[in-house]
Amino acid sequence: MTIRPLHFLVTLVMPLVAAAQNTGTLRLLVDPGHNFEFVLDKQYRMQQREVKLGEGLHHFAFWAPERMIVDTNVFVIADRTTDFVLKLPYSPEYMQYRQELAKYETKRRVARTIPTVATVAGLFWTGVNVVKYQKVRQDLEKDQENYDINVDPGSIRTLKDQTIPQHNEDLRSARTGLYTSISFTAVAAGVTYFLYRRSARWERPTLNDKQKVLFEGLTWVPTRNGGFFHAGITIPLAR
């Protein structure tokens, strides 16, 4: 209720003041170009790229998300359009946040990618060993069929003394390889599952934008239908 008289006073006085002096236009070329805000003369919070102001020195406090507040004074020349170029530097909190976020994402990517790749490789390895195992088993089945229809004592002797023992050895070797690859795959799958669950609980870094808190002080925001006071408060809900 105490705001209304002040609102009325400002609404009444501002046009009179503006009409009483010559105005100039200030084009704001601020990096980042899309979402910066500024507080004019420590009173009016605005978000636009061009302002008409009375001639003279005006104070600006520029800010954009993830950037630092930059305070500066600009002299507005009457009846002229002036370009004001400014690059808002990244805030130290944002830089730290980016580092922590990059570290977090790298850690999570490694924790998930390596065991996943190991599991996929294990499955591939198991597949290769299954094929190899099946081939050796087929060789032995062919040996049995060969024995059953063979009428050459010499080749039967070769089959029993050399070919079948060799294929038996190949089968044992293939079975060992198959069990090894299956065990490896099972362990890798278990580790993958564990790390996916675990990394899902890792806390993602959050940006504590102190510059935003500073910027969102109590300011007057003019609009076409009047204006309002803007009070900003930041509550870190993530914790």
């Binding site: 088993r137 032995l140 089945e141 040996d143 049995q144 024995y147 059953d148 063979n150 009428v151 050459d152 004592p153 039967i156 002797r157 029993k160 079948i164 023992p165 294929h167 038996n168 089968l171 044992r172 079975r175």
Partner: peptide, 19 residues
């Protein structure tokens, strides 16, 4: 489903086999 190795000693059913 694994079939064991072929038992060479058990292969003695072919008349052309010396065993």
């Amino acid at each position: 489903c694994a079939k064991d190795e072929l038992d060479v000693a058990g292969l003695n059913t072919n008349p052309f086999d010396a065993d």
